[in-house]
């Protein structure tokens, strides 16, 4: 059985996304448990100097694939290059973030390497030398413990879930062989909203539901703003056309786990609860004291959200000295 854990980084315009450090930290923890080394693959363009910093998060070796054609994530080139590194290094485990691109890359890589895969994991543990990953299924209504047989074991971790831990290691940089293979995909453009906090990565989410009564989410947006959080929505609010699909929290939308989730005018349909129950602290504001959301909320306020939510915003501003 081979040893070694290989982490895969994720960068946008040369800057590592937070999930990179989460994957490295978790990879370090597992590598220590297995008595293995941790290496990391960095793909991008002009990325080398940033790559050198990753020793801080526990990487012994840093394989850098620096190439103008790797500037943007493309599933085909990235799969080809990483499969090449994996073929050479023969890691026991490959760990990466289950971001949008991470999920796609992990799936394609698993098929390429004929490798077992645990997608969107919230915990990884070792039992008698075996790796057991826990992953939510049915939108979080159930958790599955998954055992991976064969190598490399691909573990994609849910963003915003694993702790980041620094652990200085050698961080020796090596140029990786870059075999981009057959290229079928072409990058055209990207449109990123600057400053927008992504729901799946947000520490705080303020969501609105049917109780919002219309597309005016300004009171929810203001509360999210003072908390530095993101705005979410229930399926009914999205189905009504009040919010974009990308805001939807729930089993058919995004499954989220922020530190603080504030549900405004959301009754708590089971498919919504499945998507947010793993939040650390849940606050519900609803005028119906019988709303199912209160059974899941740590703190509830029964009242008219149009009165209560602006008051919360003001009170938090005061508390934060804003």
């Amino acid at each position: 059985m081979s040893c070694g854990v290989l982490a895969i980084t994720e960068q946008v315009d040369g800057v590592f996304r937070k999930v990179t450090y989460e994957a490295l930290s978790e990879g370090r923890r597992i590598a220590d448990g297995l008595g293995c080394a941790l290496s990391v693959a960095v793909l991008g363009s002009g990325i080398k100097s940033n790559a050198e910093t990753l020793g801080k998060y526990g990487a012994e070796k840093i394989f850098v694939a620096d190439d103008p054609e790797l500037k943007e994530y493309m599933t085909d080139t990235y799969t080809n290059v990483i499969a090449g590194i994996a073929a050479k290094e023969k890691p026991r485990m490959i760990i990466l973030g289950a971001s949008f691109r991470g999920k796609e890359l992990a799936a394609r890589l698993a098929a390429r390497l004929d490798a077992p895969i645990a997608m969107d994991c919230i915990a990884v543990r070792l039992e008698g030398g075996k790796v057991i990953a826990t992953r939510p299924v049915y939108g979080g209504k159930i958790l599955a413990d998954v055992e991976l047989e064969g190598e490399p074991q691909i573990v994609a971790i849910r963003p915003n879930f694993m702790a980041i831990a620094e652990s200085q290691k050698a961080g020796t940089v090596e140029d990786a062989a870059i075999d981009k293979g057959k290229i079928d995909l072409k990058f055209i453009e990207k449109k990123l909203e600057t400053g927008k906090v992504e729901l799946t990565e947000a520490d705080v989410i303020v969501s609105g539901g049917r109780g919002m009564g219309g597309a005016d989410f300004s009171i929810v947006e203001k509360l999210a703003e003072v908390l530095g959080g993101a705005v979410g929505a229930s399926r009914s609010a999205v189905d009504e056309g009040w919010r974009p699909h990308s805001d939807q929290v729930g089993q058919t939308g995004k499954v989220v786990s922020p530190n603080l989730y504030i549900a405004c005018g959301i009754s708590g349909a089971i498919q919504h609860l499945a998507g947010m129950s793993s939040s650390k602290v849940i606050v519900a504001v609803n005028k119906d004291p019988e709303a199912p959301i209160f059974a899941k909320a740590d703190f509830g306020i029964v009242g008219n959200l149009f009165d209560v939510v602006p008051l919360i915003t003001e009170e938090i501003k005061k508390a934060k000295g804003l």
């Binding site: 159930i142 599955a144 413990d145 055992e147 047989e149 004291p289």
Partner: peptide, 22 residues
Amino acid sequence: GSQKTKVISFKLPPERKGGKII
């Protein structure tokens, strides 16, 4: 191909206790 990813057990997520209505 062989089954390489095996679910060994299912469990329910920790039950959230309804907190307090303020």
